[in-house]
Design a binder for these strands. Sequence first.
DNA 1: TTGTACGCGTTATCAC
DNA 2: GTGATAACGCGTACAA
Lengths: 348, 348
Amino acid sequence: MSTIRDVAKLAEVSTATVSRVINSPDRVSTKTRNRVNQAMKACNYKYNALARGFVTKKSRTIGLIVPAITNPIFAESTRGVQDLANNSGYQVILGNSYYQYDKEEKLLKVFRERQVEGLVITTTNVKGKVLKNLLDDGFPFVLLYSTVRKGPISNVGVDNFLGGYRATEHLIHLNHRSIAMLAGEFHFTDRSFHRWHGYKRCLKAHRIPYRSDLILQTQYSLASGRDGVKSLLSRKNPPTAIFCSNDFLAIGAIEGARELGLRVPADLSIVGFDDIEIASFMTPSLSTIRQPAYRMGELGAEILLNQIKNNFSGAVHKILETSLVIRDSTVKAPVRKKWIYEAKTISG
Amino acid sequence: MSTIRDVAKLAEVSTATVSRVINSPDRVSTKTRNRVNQAMKACNYKYNALARGFVTKKSRTIGLIVPAITNPIFAESTRGVQDLANNSGYQVILGNSYYQYDKEEKLLKVFRERQVEGLVITTTNVKGKVLKNLLDDGFPFVLLYSTVRKGPISNVGVDNFLGGYRATEHLIHLNHRSIAMLAGEFHFTDRSFHRWHGYKRCLKAHRIPYRSDLILQTQYSLASGRDGVKSLLSRKNPPTAIFCSNDFLAIGAIEGARELGLRVPADLSIVGFDDIEIASFMTPSLSTIRQPAYRMGELGAEILLNQIKNNFSGAVHKILETSLVIRDSTVKAPVRKKWIYEAKTISG
DNA sequence: TTGTACGCGTTATCAC
DNA sequence: GTGATAACGCGTACAA
């Protein structure tokens, strides 16, 4: 592999001139520039961006940590991060934490050793010491899918509380009174935790008693959704509707209900969270809370790159809007079940 | 940011010793090792993997190019690549080609400048000059989802021809005689092209005339599947079954049929290709050709890393097995339509 | 077991 | 407009 030194020798110029031809061609006379360009061709010279990064201390690389790239919502935001970063001359190293704190920690360490200039993280633990370390070091990073409104950490996300509230409210407006929640484990994702709070608050606002036996925390996966719904429906006074804290759980839940011989939405209404593209292609299509994932990725990268450029000029908190997308997986509560519920309430 | 020089000074040893503590701790006495380790803590020393790569000429990085990370099949193989690479101390830079040759070319250039040690590519153009250049330079790379059985290029994929054949055969065994194919554009993906060949061959083997008006090439997306099925069904002598060259198209097609008021599978059978996880969670669940995506990713990375280690010791061609997964989106052809078809054939 | 000295490919800072 | 040369942080002969 030839270097600028080889090129310089061949073109009979100094390495400095070759470097100039590469980085600021206008500062070199046309004549020598042409000679250098020819020499580069002749040598089959290939620019070494690593060596450049080494001296300029700019790797032009950022790290991106997602829980699992196989969840389309993260694939979509990843695309946003990549597109924006690439357009600014940055490359993206990708890692999956699989919702495991120690994996996240490990990735962070490796990425920093690799001299990434900053990080975009969908974290497993907002309170963890890994983030604190980053802060202490003044290392640029942005949290994705996070909702903190203040504090020293930059983040871009949606109002998960509000999203959970809206999803629940939608079901209540459809006369559901026995509404379960199939949630990602609060321990691993504060997103789910906040959505649960929105759910609870909404119940309260409508004077519907909160039933902890209608909450099931589980992993974020299709299979967990399928199994989870079976558990919820086997409990006494089963729900007529379920709010799932992401679309994977919701899609899994629809399948689980089907396996139990129930029809969605006739026998059971289901609302999800995310609005992954495929949600509108399901049968029934999925009612869900839409998150602007691609835009979130873009914004996260943009904020990070700004912080890198301006040496961390203060934390930025972007809360994007969610919206309720009403499709076919939610309908009015079956009258009979509603009656049973009311009878119980009155007698209790 | 402190360097090994700072650590060396503090620990009162040479930089060489610090380096040894990092890379071969057993070659350093316990006493000095401890002193050095303490000094590293005191300095808040962070290892610079880039500088190391610079001197050893090993970046411990590979590039991965996929058409679109938002297709779950690519997300899954990406996971395989990452997991295996990470376990071998390699990191992965990810890029989307969006099925565009020029983007693929651009990414390749950038990745090579970044000194990636090798590439895993799901290419848009097997015959393109970018791959030829890679070969000429003796640069390690592996093609994913590719099916070449010989030649100088390493690849791991499935037998797309056979997959297409099996999908078609399944429909024929169900008495379908009017079978359309909704395909990814041959120009952008030879996978789709080979599946089409399998489809044609199977038709021929069963003496079913090939009808070019039953072929629709389109983009690989849910929306294209939805729109494509409407086009196919609006043609005269419409099909009773459709083979879609990936699951996205198939899922889109099911929705499109539904919008036309047709039921799948009662009115129209649909078989896909990939077996993305969600395929078994659809209603109806999707009959499809299963590809071992995660394993392909793992294998691709393994082969690449071996080539890197052994200085390209000959091309490897891995053809993994596909299997037909029969679910609910395919059933026996409606008797009436079959009769119409036969009447036509006899009269013609 | 430990230290010295050099080199990796590039950019940046001076000179000219 | 161009050239000489010192960094950058680390690994690695080779010497001690």
